[in-house]
Computed example of a mutant assay.
Amino acid sequence: MQRTIFDSPILRHILPGLGRLMLRIFGWKIEGEFPDLPKYILIGAPHTSNWDFPVGIAICFARQQKVYWMGKHTLFWGPLGPIARWLGGIPVDRRKSNSLVEQMVHVYGEHERLVVAIPPEGTRKKVEKWKTGFYYIALGSQLPIVLGFIDFGRKVGGCGEVFYPTGDIEADMAKIRAFYAPIKGKNPENQ
């Protein structure tokens, strides 16, 4: 993976304080801890607004967590491209029918430590059901799924339980969705 902000020794010491300051200014709190695991899939839900990103980044900064994230390929064009990559962004071109699941399983297999945040909605718009790629990446990589959340209703974000997929996607998704049921996105009408 490319270098990120936490690869810089100076920023590694400045960013946690900056993340905590930003959360405090805007009235946010962190609940739960990032698990001490070398590799996992981090669900980022609900994803209903562009504001999810700065809140999520501030939480990662505050907890000194190196988390990669997948974003629409157009975010990586122009002058913002290097910044997005530096912040841990991985461009995804949704116009092409490529096996993103297989690619990510391969990427996880090549790294000793890797956390990728994936929004299961795949967009900020309202969707009828979640995309299941995150589940199949976890299953194919034999990795846990960490239930990360940003609750605009309570102004709290962080990590919930560590979930190990069983292969019974219907039962597993029901459990995962039950965890997110009380959590409110910035635009709850898009959940």
Rank of each mutant, 00 (worst) to 15 (best):
A117W: 03
D172A: 08
M173S: 07
I118G: 02
F149I: 12
M104R: 00
N50L: 06
V92C: 08
K72Q: 11
F6Q: 04
A181Q: 13
F34L: 10
I150M: 07
E189M: 07
D52G: 07
P9E: 12
P9S: 08
F76V: 02
S8I: 07
G32K: 10
P46W: 02
L87V: 00
R24W: 13
K29Y: 03
A178V: 02
G109C: 10
D52M: 08
N187S: 04
K184Y: 03
I57P: 01
P188T: 05
V107N: 03
G56E: 03
T74S: 15
I169P: 00
F34M: 12
I14K: 01
G44P: 00
H106N: 14
I176D: 01
P35S: 08
A181D: 13
V105N: 01
F26T: 15
P9C: 07
A181S: 08
G88M: 09
P119K: 00
V146T: 04
K39A: 06
I59S: 02
K175R: 15
K66T: 14
T123W: 08
L75D: 10
K125Y: 10
A58M: 13
W86N: 06
P91T: 11
E112G: 15
G32V: 05
V55H: 01
S49P: 04
P9Q: 07
D36L: 10
K129R: 13
W86Q: 08
D151T: 04
F53D: 02
T123G: 11
F134G: 00
R3D: 14
V107H: 11
G27M: 12
K66M: 10
R95C: 05
F76L: 09
A58F: 12
K72G: 09
G153Y: 10
F134T: 00
G27N: 11
Y68I: 01
P54H: 12
D172K: 01
L75M: 14
K66S: 15
C60R: 03
F34Q: 10
T4Q: 11
G167S: 11
L75I: 10
R24F: 13
G157L: 03
W51F: 12
P91L: 07
H47K: 10
V115K: 08
V92I: 15
I118Q: 02
K96F: 00
K66F: 07
P35Y: 10
P119R: 02
E128Q: 14
I59E: 03
